[in-house]
Design a binder for these strands. Structure first.
Lengths: 234, 234
DNA sequence: GTTCGCAGGGAACTCAGTGCCATGCGTCGC
DNA sequence: GCGACGCATGGCACTGAGTTCCCTGCGAAC
C-alpha cells in the first residue's frame, strides 16, 4: 500500500495552504505554490491532478477505505446502520486534523470553485453508499429508489453534523453531532427499530394475505403484530 | 422580464450541441462553437459564463422559478408536499424538451466535468428546498437537520425518477416515475397522519413468527414475499 | 447631423493542465 | 567497477478556457 508518505506531497499541501490562507485561493497560482515549496511546476500536477485536489489531499484514501468497508460483508447487519457506520469513516478523517479541517471549511465556504469540487467528492461517497444499498436491496420493490434516497439522507445528515462541528471551530463534539443526526435518519428509515440487537434471524416467517396492499400499510400491520408502536417523531 | 428571446443565445446552444454530439464535448473548443455559430468568441462568454453553462441553458431560469414558487406562501400546505411540488418544476423543465434532455443526459453521463457542473446545479436546487424547509421547521427540535435530510431525500427521489425516464429515451411516463418516487419520500417523512389515500387496506393480515427479529429483516422478508412493488399508484 | 448608448468583434493576456524530453540518481546484473 | 535500466523530477512549449481592454457599427434621441 502507501508504505512511507511521500514528503513532497505534504510539502506541496503545506505551501499551498499557507498561500491560500494568507492571500486567498484564486489569488494563488500553481506557480506560486511550487515556488514556495521549491519544486518544479510539473511535479505539482504529478501529485495532484488539479489545483483543487491539493485542498482535499486525503479524500481519495478515505473513499477507498469506505469502499473497502462496504465491500467486506457486514451483510448480517441492518443495511442502514451499515451505511451510517461507513459515513462515520468520513467524519473520523475530518476529526483527525481539526485545525486543517476548519481551515479548509472556511476556504470552501468562500470559493465557489472549491465548493463545486467538494460536491463532486461528496457525490462519490454518496454513490458508494447507494451502490452498497442497491446490492442489499436487490430484488426488493423500489430497491434502487430506496437505496438512493437513504444514501442521500445519510450523507445530508452526516454533513449537517459535520458542518455544525466545523462551524464551532472544532470545539463541539463531532461524534455526538453526527451520531445524533444519523440516529434520526436511522430511525426514519428503519421501520420502527425495536429490539435491534440482531442475532439469529433465520426463523423469520411472514405471511401476507393481500398482495395489492401498499407497503407502508404492511409495515404498520407488522408493527402492530410485533407489539411495539411506531415511535413517530420526537 | 425576458421579453423576446435573444436569438444569438439559442444559436450558440444549437451550434454547441451539434458539435458536442458529433465530436464530443472535450473535443469541441469554444472557438469551434463560435465559428459554427458565426459570432465572435467574446460574445460566447457574454451569454455563458463558462463552456459548461451552454449545456444547461435553462437551469438558471428554473432555479428562479423554484425560488419564486417557494417564496410565495403555500404555508398552509404540508411542507414536504410543497417541496415535492417544487421539485416537479424541474421535471417539467426537462419534460418540455425530451430529446434535448436525453441528449444532454448522455453527454453528462460521459463527461466528468459536466457531471460535476450538474452537481453544482442540483446542489442549488437542494439548497433552495432546504432553506424553505428550514423556515417551515424553524423553532422545531432538529428543524434544520430535518430540513436538510428531507431536501436531500426529495432531490434524490426526483433524480431517481428523472434518470429512469431519461434512460428510457423519454419513452416512459416521466411524471408517473417521479410521482412514484416522491410519494415514497412523502410517505416516509410525513408524520403518518393516518393512511393517506386509504382505500382497501383492511384485509392486510400478517404473521411473524419470531418477535425478536430485527425490523429491517422482517421488512425484507415481507418484500420478498410480496415479490413486486405493492404500491404502484398508477 | 451630432451624440449617446449598446451589442458585438477582436487582439492580447493570464493561468490551469498536458505532452515531450532531458537530467539526475539509485539499483541490479555482469 | 561499469553500463543498463527504472524512476522521480525539472524544464519547456503548447492548448484552451476565461478575462481585460478597446474598437466598430448601428439605432435612437435631441
Amino acid at each position: 500500500m502507501t508504505v512511507p508518505k511521500p514528503p513532497m506531497r505534504d510539502a506541496l499541501v503545506a505551501a499551498a495552504f499557507r498561500l491560500f490562507l494568507e492571500r486567498g485561493y484564486e489569488q494563488t497560482t500553481v506557480d506560486d505554490i511550487v515556488a514556495l515549496a521549491g519544486v518544479g511546476r510539473r511535479s505539482f500536477f504529478r501529485y495532484f491532478p488539479s489545483k483543487e485536489d491539493v485542498v482535499f489531499p486525503d479524500h481519495e484514501r478515505c473513499l477507498a477505505d469506505m469502499t473497502e468497508f462496504l465491500g467486506r460483508g457486514g451483510d448480517e447487519h441492518d443495511p442502514v446502520a451499515r451505511v451510517c457506520d461507513a459515513a462515520r469513516l468520513v467524519l473520523r478523517m475530518y476529526a483527525e486534523n481539526p485545525t486543517f479541517s476548519v481551515q479548509r471549511y472556511r476556504l470552501t465556504k468562500k470559493v465557489p470553485g472549491l465548493r463545486t469540487y467538494e460536491l463532486s467528492v461528496v457525490w462519490r461517497y454518496e454513490r458508494a453508499l447507494a451502490e452498497y444499498l442497491r446490492r442489499r436491496f436487490a430484488g426488493q420493490p423500489d430497491g434502487t429508489l430506496r437505496a438512493d434516497v437513504i444514501a442521500a439522507a445519510v450523507v445530508a445528515a452526516h454533513n449537517n453534523g459535520l458542518r455544525s462541528w466545523l462551524r464551532s471551530d472544532g470545539e463541539s463534539d463531532a461524534s455526538a453531532e453526527v451520531d445524533h443526526a444519523l440516529a434520526l435518519v436511522q430511525r426514519t428509515f428503519t421501520p420502527s427499530a425495536g429490539p435491534d440487537p440482531a442475532e439469529d434471524v433465520e426463523d423469520v416467517v411472514v405471511l401476507v394475505s393481500r398482495r395489492g396492499a401498499p407497503m407502508w400499510r404492511v409495515v404498520q400491520e407488522i408493527e402492530a403484530t410485533l407489539g411495539h408502536p411506531p415511535d413517530r417523531q420526537n
